[in-house]
């Protein structure tokens, strides 16, 4: 029987909402350099995400467009001008448009890759860390083997194997990249799970009669998942480089499927010797800026969310009764305490 005034029970945020609150709280409180780093990172990353979303409206031409709608072919290797803000390539495509469309590819692949590796790394890490024993050993062995494998080579092998199976280049690249990063999520989540598993509140949950599954989802997960945003952002930065590397080597997104900065860089190699700087410089800047943005975001989050690194927010302390005189000579008698 609900009491009549039960309506005042406030609607409460769900698990995700509460997690968000735990993350957003420290961000609002952050001060100093970490805050600056965090906001610069957010600004750069946010800009590229917006570019990716609005690419069709921003880009003046298609990513593979080499002629006007009227069928008039763009000139090759045109330096930056009013029609082609960043010039054209050897294939007569517009550099600016390819960078804008490229942002869309990068963001798509990175988001998918992060989701995939989270979807595998997080549950596997949780189970491995919580269960322990031989399962843990075997999983750690597999993940360490994956980790020890040169990451680009691994991505190439996966991309190569999948290229015949999957039609979508974006999906192929995303899967190839996630395989590279799963071990990192696994490690972070597993190690964190092992330390949380030893906390008394986990034993308390056992003593309450909770099943292992309940303990993992209700008690361990919420305390482990905090480390994920930082790893995810830093890995996202890294995976841009991997994607560009794949594209550079010709195993990434095929030119028919989308624009990709790494591929553009590769095509621009020959141009560099001929003094054609714009085909290489601008995709390069794009890669560097997105990677930097994500890294700053990750580092900023790390500083803000990691309580050990977080500097206490402290204002200089002033005694209310001591605005002017620093010496304070006449106050040595305890009897004068009453005056304050």
């Amino acid at each position: 029987m609900a009491a009549p005034d039960d309506s005042r029970v406030p609607r409460r945020p769900g698990l995700l909402g509460r997690q968000f609150r735990r993350v957003s709280g420290p961000i609002k409180e952050s001060r100093g350099l970490p805050r600056v780093v965090l906001w610069i990172g957010t600004a750069i990353t946010g800009m590229w995400v917006l570019v990716a979303i609005f690419a069709p409206w921003i880009a003046p031409y298609g990513y593979a467009q080499y002629q006007t709608a009227a069928g008039e072919r763009f000139p090759k290797h045109l330096p930056p001008n009013m029609d082609h803000l960043l010039g054209t390539t050897v294939q007569s495509t517009d550099v600016f448009s390819r960078i804008i469309w490229g942002a869309r590819t990068e963001v798509e692949v990175v988001i998918l890759a992060v989701l995939f590796s989270l979807a595998i790394g997080l549950p596997v890490g949780l189970i491995s860390g919580f269960k322990g024993g031989w399962l843990d050993r075997v999983l750690v062995l597999i993940m360490d083997a994956l980790f020890a494998f040169p990451y680009l080579l691994l991505a190439i092998v996966i991309a190569f194997l999948l290229s015949d199976v999957l039609a979508s280049g974006v999906l192929t690249a995303a899967i190839a990249i996630s395989v590279v990063y799963v071990p990192q999520y696994f490690r972070v989540v597993r190690n964190h799970t092992i330390s949380v598993r030893e906390e008394p509140f986990v034993e308390a949950a056992r003593a309450m009669g909770a099943r292992p599954r309940w303990i993992v989802t209700k008690y361990v997960f919420a305390n482990v998942v905090q480390s994920v945003p930082v790893v995810a952002t830093l890995n996202a930065a890294d995976s841009i480089l991997t994607l560009a590397g794949l594209g550079f080597l010709g195993y990434g997104i095929q030119p028919t499927q989308g624009a990709e900065w790494g591929y553009d860089l590769q095509r621009a190699i020959a141009d560099a010797g001929a003094g054609i700087w714009w085909t290489g410089l601008f995709p390069g800047i794009a890669i560097v800026s997105l990677v930097t943005g994500l890294t700053l975001l990750g580092e900023g989050l790390n500083d803000v969310l990691n309580p050990l690194l977080r500097p206490r927010r402290t204002e200089p302390v002033k005694f209310p009764d001591k605005q002017d005189d620093g010496a304070e000579t006449g106050r040595t008698q305890p009897e004068q305490r009453g005056k304050s």
């Binding site: 206490r312 927010r313 200089p316 305890p334």
Partner: peptide, 21 residues
Amino acid sequence: RDLRVWYGTAKGAAQAVDRVS
């Protein structure tokens, strides 16, 4: 003599030691 040690916290100065002799 009349020792005060106040340290800063997020919410203001904590008067951990306040005029102790």
